[in-house]
Write a protein that binds this DNA or RNA. Sequence first.
RNA 1: GUGGGUGUAGCUCAGUUGGUUAGAGCGGAUGGCUGUGGCCCAUCAGGUCGCGGGUUCGAGCCCCGUCACUCACCCCA
Length: 422
Amino acid sequence: MSTATEPVPGTSDIWSPEVLDWCALEAKAREVFSLYGYSELRTPVFERTDVFVRSLGDETDVVKKEMYTFEDRGGRSLTLRPEGTAGVMRAMAASGLAEGDERRVFYMGPMFRGERPAAGRRRQFHQVGGEAVGRCAPAADVECIAMLMHYLEAIGVSGGKLLLNTRGVAEDREGVAVALRTHFESHVAGMCEDCRRRFTANVWRILDCKNPDCQEHILAAPHMVDLLGDSSRAFFKAVCQGLEKLGLAHEIAPRLVRGLDYYVHTVFEVTHHGLGAQDAIAGGGRYAITVPGSSHPIAGVGFAAGMERLLMARESLGIKTGAVAATDVYVASLGEAMVNDGVLLASTLRRQGIRVMAETTGRSIKAQMRTANKLGAGIVLLLGEQEKAKGVVTGKTMATGEQQEVPLTELASWVKARLPQG
RNA sequence: GUGGGUGUAGCUCAGUUGGUUAGAGCGGAUGGCUGUGGCCCAUCAGGUCGCGGGUUCGAGCCCCGUCACUCACCCCA
């Protein structure tokens, strides 16, 4: 409510039980990705700025206006990672990736972009992604996409639409650019300001423009696939065939180019209805990235999925992790003098693997019972002067209301026998 | 960065054409005779009406600014 206690715009506090949904996404990621030979990699949350500028391309929106960049005390320019791939490639180069070596890693964690927040868009958001480097082959792309679709299925996100396109090999790009410029040359004057700039800076991106004034010319533009050389076309065709072989439905999206410059060949996106205007839940493609300080480009294919959006998709499908009771057992201490005995009792039971909360103030028994009920405790253990004198506690099963005196020596097994899972 | 919507109790929201002590539901605390939860009843706590100016005899209601949230554009996860 108060401005001072509000988290910074575009960031948020994630409380239980929502955290349980996050844990479920993370657990499934580790489970599914390991089936494909991927291992987890944790890279720093910030990198030297040029790691991103060089990898993503300095004409991209991310680099131009969305990065959180700052100087450290030594005057180095550092940047909070706006995506995961660049850092992963830097780590690959740092660890010494041998020629011909193949590596598969996955990651998950926060990313940062200084954009205006909206539905499904935060300044700190979270991605789970995977990268397979060292092989440039259509089957590698197919497997990467297959793994992503497998993951979506595993977390219950059905109904996603896979969009596919190709950007071809680097050698073809100049030819494509020339063809696109030729097409747009006569129309560019009547197009939007961004497109006029893109025309000289990065023609490809014109295809991405959503401005209605530009649509007519964009729709008339030649399709990417038709402008590419034979080898690029063959690669793309092989990817499509591979997906068909696995029964993975996909739709060719001729104008899908994606926002980052490092992509070559295959690019893809998975969209999902019912998320609001930001309907992409995952995206990726094949890339060739030369990290600063390294002479060879690293070839790979990867994807990233937005965890917030996966959660939104799941919610729109009615999937929700149920709230879990805060505790199984509540120790009610009758009177302040009994509190320490109650705390000791709780401590003992926890060593037996039982979830216990103990009264700390010795309020009225009524108040304690209300608390126990609210916490969802299945069992309440009452500890008063009477019980202490006899070496027992009064155990009450909340669902039935029945209660009995239980000797301390038998307490752990008595409780365990009455817990949900035994 | 641009535009729209919103901002009243911990939460969800009422609040009449500006009018005096700002309300409800939920939640919370306590109690309903000796040491017992849920249902019910009662009492209590809790609000600088986002913040700052202005208009007015008088502002939660009107005006301006500002901050925040939210949605959309741009772009993407």
